[in-house]
Write a protein that binds this DNA or RNA. Structure first.
Lengths: 339, 339
DNA sequence: GTGAAAGCGCTAACAA
DNA sequence: TTGTTAGCGCTTTCAC
């Protein structure tokens, strides 16, 4: 055997014909064995697998997909690999896909509509059987158009339209959980640092207002304009009178709030309590221990994949599913000391 | 048009033959246009693209790959989607691949050798032209075997062997940077909380020892056995005498150290300084502001992809590349107060 | 249970 | 510049 060159495949791959010849059977039989069909005798199976192993045979997916006219593959588009939120969704999708014998091809949208659009094109060119879009910033028109070509489920982003499915979380409920938690600790002066135009900011804001009103705290409603950053949280503290509790639109803003409170020696939760939103990785760090709202991210992935696969095998139609968030109490909330 | 069923593709896709017929040319010409070959007249190109657009034609990659016997695709295996380290490496790989007209298919190893192995099998079955393995826990024997079938570069994990390439970071240099920084701040009693058997722990430990000796601090060498967790950092503080500075094997352990110091009201960096390793996402949070060692993660991805693509087009051979880390000074290190 | 043969949709000679 | 044609490696009837 000569030394291989650096480029190109080292050895030309054996094909099914090679395996068939080596095993002394026909190519069709090899195909059956490879697809684990019950229509091949145990003896034939052994012979084929032995020959395949000996030759180092590997099925060519491109050829297989082409001939079978389906790929048993779903495309998963993640908005941003840097955001661990999507890793959890991906885990959920993979868990279901694995169980059902589907493959997942992953693409990173890299926070750009153009990159997402290209990724979708690649999915379509790859003949995926279905698509899950996690987060993402594609306009809904484009998604609807894609959904006409191949079944599509949006994960984490609520979308209307009956050509596609969606799985999302009820952010209004999350906001309510946060407010009720603080209320039960005796807080009345609860302000919301909102997320501006960020994803999910609007329902969280609305949920805060609704919950405050229902608890008879309509007069205490106070919303500080913010965004999904540490800086926004810190600014909210520095430029407004202190309440007894903050509910921020996400964990990063909560961290900014805590940081600014630390700077001015306001004890948390001794004097002021803080509730975030998202249950980011760092919220769970001992050093931070943020009380926050958890979205069932893994569950979103699972539900999205299940919905898609059910649609693929005709078991059920695509639809719109709303999951419930939960409250995670850690160490940034405590009894209201002002009472 | 009748209502589509939920499962299956909505409309049977048009093929090149359909486009050729619609444009009044041959299929071969359509193929040339689709591949942006200069060997098609502007007029033919227009006609073909117009017809393709009208029909909603999309090239079938499986068929294309099968016929062309190459895919212009590289596989990127990430050890763990939850670890943002890999997102940066992925960005680097994508940047280079995009520039060179290659596609990237992504797989998540999910911290499991079995899942990684399956992902590699999928890559091979998909006929990828090359593979980048970022991090990962596959035994080097398996990697070498794969590398005999298709060019492979390891990103972030140093590997020997001339059948594959690797790009990694010189952790001994990183450790030296940390120690020298503390030395310049006047620290002498610098202990290292090590990473046990974790990835990169050994060279960091060795680099610490070497740097201490070179600075004449051989007598001060003190290593506390740890691992890559918050808890290990906290334990190191609680169970050993305080030094004036800690250098931990990763940022998580550094966070544990800081947390334990906070618990006992030891000011950081007033009385004790802390240097981490990795420059994790949370290290940059204002609330934490950890001084740490940064690895050029994006650069690792770029270099790995460049090496792979160069090998693919025969420009150069696979080799082993060592990149340099840098020190990022934030707010957990300061002058030694014990002097 | 097994084999023969007709494609799947495309690329790449080669011919015109 | 364009058309003809022989595969790429596999799946899938349909006979046997």
């Amino acid at each position: 055997m000569t030394e291989p060159t650096a480029g190109g495949r080292r050895t030309s791959q054996p094909t099914m014909d090679d395996v068939a010849a080596a095993a002394g059977v026909s190519r069709a039989l090899v195909s059956l064995v490879m697809r684990e069909s019950p229509r091949a005798s145990a003896q034939a199976r052994r012979a084929v697998l032995e020959a395949a192993g000996r030759l180092g045979y590997r099925r060519n997916l491109a050829a297989s997909n082409l001939a079978a006219r389906r790929t048993l593959t779903i495309g998963l588009l993640l908005d941003d690999l840097h955001n661990p939120w999507f890793a959890d969704v991906s885990d959920g999708v993979h868990a279901v896909a694995d169980r059902c014998g589907y493959q997942v091809i992953l693409a990173d949208g890299r926070r750009s509509a153009a990159a997402e659009s290209r990724a979708i094109d690649t999915f379509l060119a790859s003949q995926v059987d279905g698509i899950v879009v996690a987060g993402g910033r594609l306009v809904s028109g484009r998604l609807a158009a894609v959904a006409r070509e191949v079944p599509l489920v949006s994960a984490g982003r609520p979308l209307r339209g009956n050509s596609l499915g969606s799985v999302s979380v009820d952010d209004a409920v999350g906001a309510r959980l946060a407010v009720e938690h603080l209320y039960e600790l005796g807080h009345r002066d609860i302000v919301h640092v909102d997320g501006g135009r960020g994803a999910g900011a609007a329902p969280r804001r609305a949920g805060y207002v609704a919950a405050m009103r229902e608890l008879g705290l309509g007069d205490h409603v106070r919303i500080i304009a913010g965004e999904f950053t540490e800086e926004a949280g810190a600014r909210a503290v520095r430029t407004h009178e202190l309440p007894t509790a903050y509910f921020t639109a996400n964990d990063l803003a909560a961290l900014g709030v805590i940081d600014a409170l630390d700077d001015t020696d306001v004890p948390v939760p001794g004097r002021v309590s803080v509730v975030g939103y998202d249950n980011n990785t760092f919220a769970a760090l001992r050093h931070i221990g943020l009380t926050t709202i958890d979205q069932p991210r893994n569950g979103i992935g699972r539900a999205a994949a299940e919905m898609l696969l059910a649609a693929l095998d005709g078991t059920s139609e695509l639809h719109h599913l709303l999951l419930q968030p939960t409250l995670v109490v850690r160490s940034t909330t405590g009894p209201c000391s002002a009472r």
